[in-house]
Amino acid sequence: DEIHIHFNGVTIEFRGLTEEAKKALEEAIKRGASEEELKELARRLIK
């Protein structure tokens, strides 16, 4: 299970995320999180 985020022309790929983690990332994107914020969020979620 993986998710691809297209962000300002950059694709960020995450693997092994739970549904909750995906929802958290989607919410962050909707509120306009920066690419760095998304990566940091993903790091926290994957652990």
Rank of each mutant, 00 (worst) to 15 (best):
F7N: 03
G32P: 03
A21P: 01
F14I: 15
L41N: 00
R44Y: 06
G16A: 03
G16F: 08
G9V: 00
I12W: 01
E27H: 10
T18Q: 06
E35W: 14
L17R: 00
I46D: 08
L41Q: 02
I5N: 01
K30F: 09
F7C: 15
E35P: 14
G16W: 10
L25S: 00
L38I: 10
D1L: 14
V10H: 10
I29G: 03
N8M: 03
A42G: 05
E2M: 14
A21Q: 11
A24D: 09
E36W: 06
D1S: 14
H4R: 05
L41V: 05
R31D: 13
H6F: 03
L41I: 10
A24Y: 08
I5H: 02
E13R: 14
A24M: 12
E35V: 14
T11N: 02
R31P: 01
E19M: 09
L25A: 02
T11S: 03
I3G: 10
R44H: 13
I29V: 07
E26F: 14
E26N: 10
E26R: 11
I29E: 01
A28Q: 04
K22E: 04
E35H: 11
I5S: 00
R43A: 13
A33N: 03
A28N: 02
S34Y: 06
L41G: 00
A42N: 03
E19R: 04
N8D: 12
I29T: 02
E20G: 10
A42D: 01
F14D: 03
K23Q: 12
H4C: 08
K47W: 04
L45W: 08
K30N: 11
L41H: 02
F7R: 08
K30G: 10
E26V: 13
A33F: 10
E27N: 13
E35Q: 08
S34D: 10
I5Q: 01
R15I: 15
R31Q: 09
A21E: 14
L45I: 14
R15D: 15
R31H: 09
E20Q: 10
D1N: 12
G9S: 02
E40R: 05
K23V: 12
K22L: 13
V10Q: 09
L38D: 00
I29M: 07
S34Q: 07
D1C: 15
L25P: 00
E37P: 00
H6Y: 02
I29F: 09
E26Q: 12
E2H: 15
K47D: 15
A42I: 13
T18S: 11
K23A: 12
E20L: 10
K30S: 13
F14C: 13
G32Y: 04
K22Q: 12
S34H: 06
I46A: 07
A21W: 09
E37W: 12
I29H: 04
V10N: 06
I5L: 12
A24S: 10
L45S: 04
K22V: 14
A24I: 12
R44G: 09
L25E: 00
D1H: 14
I3Q: 05
K23D: 10
T18V: 04
T18G: 11
I3E: 04
A42W: 07
I12V: 06
A28M: 14
A42K: 00
K23W: 09
I3F: 15
V10F: 02
I3L: 13
E2R: 14
G16C: 11
R43D: 14
E13I: 15
I5P: 02
R43T: 14
A24C: 06
T11Y: 05
G32A: 04
K39T: 15
G32H: 06
E37V: 11
E13P: 00
E2G: 13
T18N: 08
E2Q: 12
I29L: 10
F7W: 04
T18I: 04
E13S: 10
E26Y: 14
T11K: 07
A33W: 08
F7Y: 05
V10I: 13
E40D: 11
E27S: 10
L45E: 02
I3V: 08
A33L: 12
I12Y: 02
D1F: 15
F14G: 09
L41E: 02
T18R: 04
L25V: 13
H4F: 06
E26P: 00
R15V: 15
K39V: 15
L45H: 07
D1W: 13
E36T: 13
L17K: 00
H4Y: 07
V10A: 05
A28T: 04
K39H: 11
R44V: 12
E37L: 09
L25I: 11
D1V: 13
L17V: 06
N8K: 02
R31F: 07
E35T: 07
E13Q: 05
K47N: 08
L25Y: 02
R43C: 11
E35N: 06
G16R: 02
I12K: 00
G16S: 10
I3N: 05
R43N: 14
G16N: 13
R15K: 15
E37S: 07
E36F: 05
R15W: 15
A21G: 13
H6I: 12
E20Y: 06
T18Y: 03
A24P: 04
L38W: 06
R31T: 10
